[in-house]
Design a protein around this nucleic acid. Structure first.
Lengths: 353, 353
DNA sequence: TATTAGCACTCAATAATTATGAGTGCTAAT
DNA sequence: ATTAGCACTCATAATTATTGAGTGCTAATA
């Protein structure tokens, strides 16, 4: 059966009412709304139909109705109205992001904090990952004693640094750094294969007189560290917000969610599993692969440098979350960080794509 | 009144029983323990005394006794036995730390995760801070377009990096980097004053032909970034463990704690407020400055490079936490990370002090 | 004098019981 | 097609009864 205009209207009203109150909504509540000119009995009939069609369900016989996953899905796909974020909120967001503009990780973390403040749901963010990133600088810094710090910088501003313990003179280290930079800069991380480094090793052995074992150690370390460019971290913000929603009143539920969110691995899988090819993605209840999140929904958005997605920002909340507001918020914030990333990494003012 | 041996014994038993069960302990339970050769009536009399002296309290007339803050304080200061950590646990800890040894921040975060696994309480850790650190390298890397990354490295392996947007040629940048390094390296962060940079600015203006405004911009940026060495981050782990303890069954309590732990500022103040001059510190219940933590205890330990404390690691749990185990765990892990830090930043095998 | 058995009393926690009322489905009238 | 009316359902809240762990006190005992 197709949903006629009236059924759509009723379904939308029910879902929005439920999103607001978390209480099963009854026929009388709907019929009393000023824009509904129907008696509760009529609404009841329509609700029975909507239940038959799988959009609603009754927790028990004498209760009102609650949306099903299918109901929410229909709502976000077809009924949901666009939410308008206030100009002040946008201005505030932009101000806050400006402050952090020059530390990539900080920018992303800040975006997560802003999103959680804007929506009051838990946010999840993955730090930028880009193994096809171009290496811009390799640096070996003598710290003191025998400890040497290796720093790798990519064109997109990702930095990895690690310390190694080796016995090498300052001048040798400087020469080695020069060769590494001249040979490896402007390559992408995946172009720097183990084989390539072995060739480089031969070359260096001819030009410098560094103890072979030490050289191998260093090159291995460089190789590993470049591999680290591929790793991402995830950060979770505002977990405590779950206590603002009655669905987590039950300690068992709250515990389950927090357990899940406390496990970086799972969160990483969760947020990483989204597709890169479209902007906003919504996953509702059981659509989710994780058993622990069957009562939650997840909305994610990609953020990009010059159109290339490098990470994700997401919101986790109860299934009855305010999808309209969340979608708009994520839209808005991703647009803003994309613009900042674009400007900072190309030096041009302009479209974030 | 002084506590005689029998009272001490009884108090210790009561506290340890309560730590284990979270239930008010009654006279019968104590009297039945194999090493107590006293009837419950006698124990009752002693318990009444201990209550008069302020070490115990009854939640209500017909309940057993619960330790007061004063009781716990006496316990940790005078009664607590040393807890022995298993060799396997120590070996596992050392193995796990080895893996992360070459990224300072990672090492510290890992230490926090290990501690929470070892104790099953929430852990809090502050990343290294050292504004008296010696600058070892300043690097300006051209990323592309007009964006330039500034990297500052200290002798203790702390790295700060930020991106700035300026119009400068690669060769100018290289020369500038050279001068900055020759003039600023081996100074400590607080020695690099604004005035010093102004003098440096004059010098550079004479030697290079960089547009003055741009130069000022860069030097300001360097100054700010060096200032960032002073900042620390805090990380909180295993918050979900609170659900394992009945004192947080009440959602309001759990919420209060999570709210507190979700606020980096507060956590930073909390962990930062500990003293640097001694190793383990224990703060019990209301001894704590934060109202939200009146039902919690906090145990912290400093970690150091070569004897100089650079950060803190702490455990937050219910007042009836297993102090013996927590103290031993923190002792053990701080000893291990101190040793690693010492080795890696001096290149020597040896005492962590 | 210190210890203990015995007993009446207290009171939180649990279980059992009884309203209450929001909401439904169905029927008959409009 | 819509709606007023009514009997029925059942979760929630309020009320009452029951249980039992634990106490303090007293009198007997070693």
């Amino acid at each position: 059966m197709e949903l006629n205009e009236r059924k759509r209207k009723i379904l939308q009203t029910i879902i929005e009412e439920y999103i607001g109150t978390a209480e099963p909504v009854g026929s009388r509540a709907i019929s009393k709304r000023s824009d509904m000119e129907l008696s509760s009995a009529t609404i009841r009939n329509e609700m029975a139909d909507l239940e038959d069609m799988g959009y609603l369900i009754q927790p028990h016989t004498s209760a009102g109705r609650v949306p099903t996953d299918v109901g929410y899905r229909f709502y976000v796909d077809s009924l949901m109205q666009r939410y308008k974020i206030s100009m002040e909120a946008i201005a505030r967001m932009q101000r806050e992001l400006e402050n952090r503009v020059n530390q990539l990780d900080m920018l992303i973390k800040k975006a997560s904090v802003i999103t959680s403040a804007l929506t009051n749901y838990t946010t999840v963010v993955s730090t930028p990952k880009l193994n096809s990133a171009i290496i811009k600088k390799i640096d070996l810094v003598m710290l003191g004693g025998q400890s040497v710090m290796l720093i790798v910088v990519t064109k997109t501003g990702i930095v990895r640094n690690r310390v190694i313990n080796i016995d090498i003179s300052a001048s040798e280290l400087e020469q080695l750094t020069g060769i590494l930079n001249s040979r490896l800069c402007d390559l992408t991380a995946d172009e720097i294969s183990y084989a390539r480094l072995e060739i480089l090793q031969k070359e260096i052995e001819q030009r410098l007189c560094i103890e072979p074992n030490i050289l191998i150690n260093i090159l291995n370390f460089v190789y590993e560290t470049i591999g680290l460019l591929d790793t991402t971290e995830v950060y979770v913000d505002n977990v405590q917000s779950i206590f603002d929603y009655p669905e987590y009143r039950d300690v068992g539920k709250a515990r389950e969610i927090l357990n899940f969110l406390g496990d970086k691995k799972s969160v990483q899988t969760l947020i990483g599993s989204g597709r890169d090819d479209r902007d906003i993605q919504i996953v509702i209840g059981n659509e989710n692969p994780f058993e622990e999140l069957r009562d939650c929904s997840l909305v994610t958005v990609n953020y990009s440098v010059g159109g290339k997605p490098i990470g994700k920002l997401g919101v986790i909340g109860p299934k009855r979350m305010n999808y309209a507001k969340v979608v708009s918020s994520l839209d808005c914030i991703s647009e803003n960080i994309n613009k900042i990333l674009y400007e900072i990494y190309t030096g041009e003012q302009g479209e974030s794509e």
